[in-house]
Each structure stands twice: as C-alpha cells, then as structure tokens.
Amino acid sequence: MIERVVPSNPGAFQQAFEAWAADQHGAGVLRKAGAREVYQAMWDSFAAWCLGQSPVVRIHTVDQRDLHAFQSARYGRKATDQSLSPRYALRLMRLIERVLAHHAERTGSRPNRAPADWVRAHPHVRYAESERADPPPEVLTPQEARLLLAHLWAARPRPGQDPAALASLPWQEIRNRASVALQLGAGLAPSDVRALTLASPVMNGVGPQARTWKLRVPANGTIRARETPVAPWAAELLHHWLHVREAARVGGEFLFPSTRTGKPWLADSQYQCARKVLEAAGVGSRGGAGGSFRLRHTFALRQLRRGSRPEMVARWMGVAPAEMKRYDRVVPGPETVV
C-alpha cells in the first residue's frame, strides 16, 4: 500500500494532476480500480516535497536539480512498497514528465524537459523497465475519425446543404473547426495553430481553384520553423475559413485570431474551443479535457502507415526523429486512415 502524502495548499500541482487524470480517464487509461489512487499518491509525494522547500519549488520552475534533490530525499525513508527501486523511480519520473507536459499544453507554456533529462542522466533508472514498453500513443479510432470528419465537413459548403444552416454558424465556429482540422490533417500542435499567419498557407495554383497543399509553420517556443503537408479535406475547410474570415472582416495577421480585430488566440481559449469541437462531434468523452494530442498522433500514424519515412514525419511535426519510435508498436497492420 502506498502512503499518500497530501501537500498543504497544493494549488497548481493538484490542478495539473486532475486535468491530466481527467484526460487519461477519458482515454480509458485510468479506469482500472485503484489506478488513479496510485498515481495520485505518487504525485502528491512529489507536490508535498516541492511545496515544503524554501523557497518553494513552483510547478513551472521544476528543474533537474530539484528532481535530483527530491529523489535523494526519498532515501532514508522506510518503504515496504519498493518505492525506492529503480523501476519505481522510473514510473514516478514518467508520471511527473507526463503531467508537466499536459500542463504545458493546457496552459500554452514551454514544455519542461527536466524529467526526461533526469532519466537519461541515470542509466540504472532509464533501463529499469527495458523489457516493458510505454503505452502506445493515443489516436482516434476509425469510427471516431469518421465522426469528427463528418462534424468538420458540415461547416463548409457542399451539394444539397441548406444554405441557411451554414450561414447560421458564427465565424468563430468556422475558425474552431478549421483549426481542429489542421491539427488532424497537418499534425499541428496547439501552439502551432496559434502561431500560424496569413502567410502560412502555400497554394498549389492561382485563382478560384487554388488550394492549400502545405503550411509554413513559424517557430514558436522550442519548436523550429518548418513546413508540413495538409490533407485535401482539411485544405477545403481552410479554404472556406479564409472566405469566411474575409467576409466577416476579421483583421490582423494571425490565421486564427481570437477577436475580429485580430488579437492573438490565447492558449486556454483555444484549448477550450478545440474541446468543444470534439465534444460536439461525439468524440470528446474519450479525449477528456481537450484530447488534441490524439489528433496529432493520428496524423503521425496515418503518414507512417502510408509509407512516409519517420525522419520526414518528424520534420513535419517539428520533433526529434527519435520520437517516432513511440509509434513502432501501432504502425503494423491495416487501419482506416483519414
């Protein structure tokens, strides 16, 4: 039995864990009896240590020195649950890494690499579970993809559609669906969506028939500037959004601004808008509080299954080629792609 150490005034630490746990539960990862309690106890021990330091270690300032001090402080405790073993240390660091990564995505802050760097610096911990693999990336099922595409496509003109129904959609709704379409159809992270400008779409022709075939994604945070292809169905919705944007006289240089005057789209607002799109499509419950990470993973999986080189997919997504290894266990075998 793991003893739960409840931190005083947990604040941001508890909020970060609860948001992560909600996403994991919605994705079916934390549905086993007692699983959430185990992770909660592990996280609480870390939060209690951080908040017990002088000065207090804040969730957005955790670094390798803090993690080393935290692990060192655990030695000397009486533990009958093997909580000081390398395998437990690895599980704890992976939990800290995932909660901090989820917190960064949700708040639009820079990802914290300290937990991963700490694990790499301690080989006896890093390879403690070499015979076991991490859970595969969470992706949309074929049925979920079809539901989401049907919902997104309903926001663009098509034969047999009631014009009045389309006209009733506010420009913000078209923006929201187009931005979600690019997360799934171009592998964009939420921060990428907010960084896009009117110069980002690259057209494959001129005139009324021209369509976007790739995007120039500006550098943002730790992600370098890059180019990524756009699925044709997503390009169609983007094309419609550009018309709606012009007709609504939305200003500014951002492709997806927050206001009609062109103000940038803040992280929390965009996060909530993406969540509402997924919920309206009928796939939000599995994704918990947003689930946009599944869209990006689905893009990567689709490209790999179509034969794209992992190095190329990594370049499109703005990540290190080594990160493509996480898809090795889910790439084999046929599956419907979008």
Rank of each mutant, 00 (worst) to 15 (best):
M324R: 07
G11F: 06
G221L: 05
L100G: 12
C273Q: 15
A128H: 05
A234E: 05
R326C: 05
E105G: 13
M317H: 03
Q71C: 06
D81M: 00
W316Y: 15
R315D: 08
A181G: 14
Q40H: 09
P201D: 01
V338A: 10
A289W: 00
R175N: 04
R65P: 00
P190L: 01
L301S: 11
D328A: 15
D81L: 03
R87E: 15
P163G: 00
H151T: 04
A154L: 08
L140T: 02
S308M: 12
A322H: 11
A267M: 01
V277T: 08
D192K: 03
R58Y: 08
S54I: 07
K32W: 02
G307W: 10
D44T: 03
S308N: 13
T61L: 08
E138T: 15
A16L: 07
A234K: 02
W316H: 11
G34Q: 09
V313N: 06
P334D: 14
S308Q: 14
S72T: 13
P86W: 03
V202T: 09
H25A: 13
A300N: 04
R98M: 13
A19K: 09
G185D: 06
P136G: 08
Q71F: 11
W213K: 00
E144V: 05
W213T: 03
W265K: 00
Q82K: 12
D192P: 07
A12M: 09
A181I: 06
R158D: 10
E129S: 14
H124W: 11
Y327V: 07
H103V: 04
I223A: 13
S292A: 04
R77L: 10
L67R: 01
A155I: 04
V99S: 11
H25V: 14
G251Q: 14
W265P: 00
Q209I: 00
Y39D: 10
V5S: 09
A247G: 03
